[in-house]
Each structure stands twice: as C-alpha cells, then as structure tokens.
Design a protein around this nucleic acid. Structure first.
Lengths: 167, 167
DNA sequence: CAACTTATATCACCTCGTTATGTATCTGTC
DNA sequence: GACAGATACATAACGAGGTGATATAAGTTG
C-alpha cells in the first residue's frame, strides 16, 4: 500500500504524494484528539505563540498563525472574554493592540498539553517499540518542517519579527 | 529545545507531551497547506473512504470520520450538490442511505492529492537528506497510529464494517 | 495640512461542527 | 398483526472559526 502510488517520487526521489496523504490522516487524528470544550488547535497555537514570544501585535499574530486579521481580531476577543489573554496599548503607536497571555491562559495551555499528552500516550502504547522509535527519530524533521511556513518562525527572543512588507 | 520539557517520559519512557505538541504544529501546517476553494480535510477524508471502501451507509461514514451523524448528513448534501458523491437507496432497508463517490469525486480527489503533493514537495526540498529519511522511516508508524482510533479502520474489501453496537 | 498608509474593528457571509428533535422504517413480542 | 421500541436519516438552532469588503482612527509624508 506504500508502493503502488503513481507519484512514487519527485525530483528529490521522494514520495511527496504518499507523505502528504499520511500527513492528512495524521492531521485528522490530531483534530479528533480534541475533547468537547477543550481549546481548539488555532486557539492553543495562538496562546503558545504568545507564551513563547511575549506580547505581540494582533496583525503579527494573524500572520504567524496564517489567518486573516479579522479572524485574529475575533479570536483575541474570545480569548479576552474567557480571560486567557488581554489587549494592551502600545505607547509608541496608539493604533496597535498588543496581545498578551494571562496567567489563566498559561494555566489553560499547560492543562491542555497535559491532557493531550496523556491521551496520546495511551495511543502510543499500542505501537511497538520500533514504531515509537521511528516516530521519535522523526521529531526533529517535523520540527524543521513546521518552521518552513512564512511568518511561522518561533521568533527567538530579541528579534521581534522583521515583518517583510506583505502588501 | 527538545530536552527541557517537564514531562520527559511516561510509563513507556516516551515523551508523549513533546510528541503531542509537535503533532499539533504539524496539524496546523497541514491545515495551512489548504488553498481557498480546495476540498477541506474532512471532505477529502470522507471521499477517500468512499473511494477505498465503496458505497457506505451515512451513519457508518460518520462513525469512521469521527463526526456526528448530522454533520455527515450536511457533508453528504454538500458533496451531492457539487456532484462529488451521490445518495442511493438500499433495497434491503428503506431507511438507509448508501453514499457513493462519483467519477467527478474521484477526479477531485486525485487533483487534490496532486496539488498538495506538489506543495509539500516544495517544502520537503528545504529539509536535508537525513530529515527526509527520518520522515520516510516514520511513515509506517504514522500509518499504524492513525488506525488506532475507533471506527477508523480502512475496512478491507469484503468486510463491510461489522458495526459493534454503539448504543 | 492634505493625502497616503497602516492597525484594528466591523459586517455579511460560508463551512463545519455540535445538541436536540422529528419522521420514516424496521423488529420483536404479545 | 398491531403496538412499542429501536434505528437511520433529516432538520433546526446554534457556536466557533474562517473569508473578503469596508469603516475608523492614527501615524507618515509631500
């Protein structure tokens, strides 16, 4: 089932079609790992960015998550209503909104990670040792892969995203 | 950055929390790989199931995708409107709706796979050889992992899902 | 100061998911 | 063989999360 694809390899001699299909299935598994009431993927990802990189302009946040600015305005409003983040003013530029994670936000993020780690751990016990090892070995590659999308850089502290003029 | 997690291992000596976080980021990448107008993840996954396993009851389809029956009714209606699938009657039981992929559905699925494979291939060229190898090596494990969720079995032909009484 | 440009908000709209409920059809029992 | 309950699907009302188009306020620049 891994061998009969018509697109067995590209210029790099790599079965990109096969990988893409597998990643689709994996993404569905990740989505199905959500329990009702739990923070959604986008919500958690946004909170994680705020946790890692500190306060962030709303527009930058939107770019990093790969969503439009109106979508981020809404998301931030929901986060604010539930007390997980807050809006702050930028004294340098009164147009901007700096979004900041709250203590409750950090707690919610930690709890989500705990719960999902636990749920995933249960699934992982169903795999054999070699499969788990293969997954572990792939983590750095996955990490590298997820850093490739524009504006998704985890932003090392001190380098506040050099915004490369997107208009 | 892979070593400082507080949940470094569970009973299997495996950093499930770290893996869960990585999978979250990977899932967001997969979602961002979608271009506007393209088939969504659930839509594509449902069509893929129909393509693999042949006509299927609406309720079974819902269980396999891990969504509720009303959600599947809606999805099938959208698929039918766009001509990618169709409803058929079951002569044995006039309550059931058998959902069947159409030729157009197969074509749309193939086109989506082609386009996404291409997009992913571009990203993969940014990885080094060792990273690509690690990803390839992890594919069987990912395949095994995605088969673990209830009702998600790809249903080998001839065994029409023995529906294990879910009420 | 007028004219852009930029940052955010707001609006109308779509998709995709949920619960709760309705309707038609089967099934088992008296 | 009719009635009670279970089952398969549809419908309705809603929320979250996304889109593009557009308004508003605040910097920036000639």
């Amino acid at each position: 089932m891994l061998m009969n694809s018509p697109d067995a390899s590209d210029s790099t001699g790599f079965p990109a079609g096969e990988v893409a299909r597998m990643l689709d299935r994996l993404a569905r598994l990740v989505l199905r790992l959500n329990t009702p009431g739990e923070l959604s993927l986008t919500t958690a990802s946004t909170l994680a960015t705020l946790d890692r990189s500190g306060p962030c302009r709303l527009t930058d946040l939107a770019a990093r998550q790969g969503v439009t600015q109106p979508a981020m305005t809404q998301l931030v409003s929901r986060l604010q209503e539930s007390g997980l983040a807050e809006r702050a003013a930028d004294p340098q530029d009164r147009r901007v909104v700096l979004v900041r994670i709250t203590a409750a936000g950090r707690a919610a993020l930690a709890e989500r990670r705990r719960a999902r780690g636990e749920r995933l751990a249960v699934l992982l016990t169903e795999l054999d040792e070699a499969e788990r090892a293969a997954l572990t070995a792939a983590l750095p590659a996955i990490d590298a892969l997820t850093r490739l999308l524009p504006d998704d850089a985890p932003a090392s502290p001190g380098v506040p995203v050099p915004e490369p003029s997107r208009h």
